[in-house]
């Protein structure tokens, strides 16, 4: 996987395509109307968070089904620091990332210390996420199930300082996050650490026999992934202006987070974005269709059937399939 990625971007045509792609993404708010900007903001959010999750699953083979926990930690830390302590999200988001990294490292440390593997590790992440969700739901300081609401943005708001603003502002916020996330992931995955990570994914015992310190490398990837997810959660909280434990930290959110990278292509740098485009578009489309048809539940049915179709016919994901479709073209030139 890693080598294929490197080859592709190593070629000049790959660089041109990537630059064109990011320029197009950059110009979106100038070209499309607000509804599309909102949809694409959501795409960038899920792409960014999916990247974070993909670091763990796609590159190290650790299945987390509780990533909403880190989203919640990031969101609540950012929001509470802003509202109750008057701290700018420039401090709040990194603070949330730090807390999430510590919680993630703690869970990972416990899990790996007691060598919880496979399905059991996945269930452990669910258990922690649900535990914290119920804790947050019953925590009066942050509003419990009733939710935590950010005050309306003041008149003299400077978006670059407060990180809050209109639709275009949030689009660019998630655009930057996505870009930074992509660069960080690419550097990590293609560097020395990334090689160790793939070694652990392929055969942990063999890697350890060769001197790879798998324990701390695994804790590291959970911490990095948690921190990135928490950044996404912080920005997401600023965008929504309200936080509810049951939606932000629920099982449904964890599922949403992992759908994009799995459908897009596990262990690829670009898969999470492609998957996010697919997932968000299908979700929006089916919602529209369900509303026009006036049939309650139709959207859920269509969404489910589409996911079923993808996992049945493209089990390795959309992006690897696209890459393979593009291969013959490349050979022709």
């Amino acid at each position: 996987m890693v080598r294929r990625e490197r080859k592709r971007t190593g070629r000049p045509r790959g660089v041109v395509a990537a630059t064109a792609f990011f320029c197009a993404l950059f110009l979106v708010p100038h070209l499309l109307d607000d509804a599309w900007v909102a949809v694409l903001t959501l795409v960038l959010f899920f792409a960014f968070v999916g990247q974070a999750w993909n670091l763990m699953m796609g590159h190290v083979g650790l299945l987390s089904l509780g990533h909403a926990l880190f989203l919640g930690i990031g969101g609540y830390t950012t929001a509470v620091l802003l509202q109750d302590y008057g701290m700018t999200p420039w401090i709040g988001i990194p603070a949330g990332a730090l807390v999430a990294a510590m919680v993630g490292a703690g869970i990972a440390w416990l899990g790996f210390r007691f060598s919880v593997r496979g399905v059991y590790f996945a269930l452990l992440t669910i258990a922690f996420a649900e535990f914290f969700r119920i804790l947050f739901s019953n925590w009066p300081l942050i509003g419990g199930t009733g939710g935590y609401f950010l005050r309306v943005v003041p008149e003299d708001n400077v978006p670059l300082l407060s990180l809050r603003g209109g639709a275009d502002h949030f689009y660019y916020l998630f655009f930057v996050l996505f870009l930074v996330g992509l660069i960080v992931s690419a550097r990590l995955v293609r560097g020395r650490i990334g090689m160790f990570w793939s070694a652990i994914r392929e055969d942990e015992d063999a890697a350890r026999a060769l001197g790879v310190r798998s324990f701390r490398l695994k804790v590291l990837v959970v911490a990095v992934s948690a921190a990135m997810t928490a950044c996404g959660g912080g920005a997401f909280a600023l965008m929504n202006g309200s936080l509810f434990p049951n939606t932000l930290m629920g099982m449904q959110m964890s599922i949403q987070i992992i759908l994009a990278p799995i459908i897009g292509g596990l262990g690829t740098l670009f898969g999470p974005f492609v998957g996010a485009v697919f997932v968000v578009l299908v979700l929006e489309f089916s919602r529209d269709l369900g509303q026009t048809a006036g049939v309650y539940g139709l959207s859920t049915l269509i969404y489910g059937l589409t996911v079923l179709g993808v996992i049945l016919y493209m089990p390795e994901g959309i992006w690897p399939r696209l890459v393979r479709l593009a291969q013959p073209l490349r050979r022709d030139r």
Binding site: G297, T300, L301, I302, G304, V307, L308
Partner: peptide, 8 residues
């Protein structure tokens, strides 16, 4: 996906 279809 099953869960979504059944819930739908």
């Amino acid at each position: 996906a099953f869960a979504l279809v059944i819930t739908g």
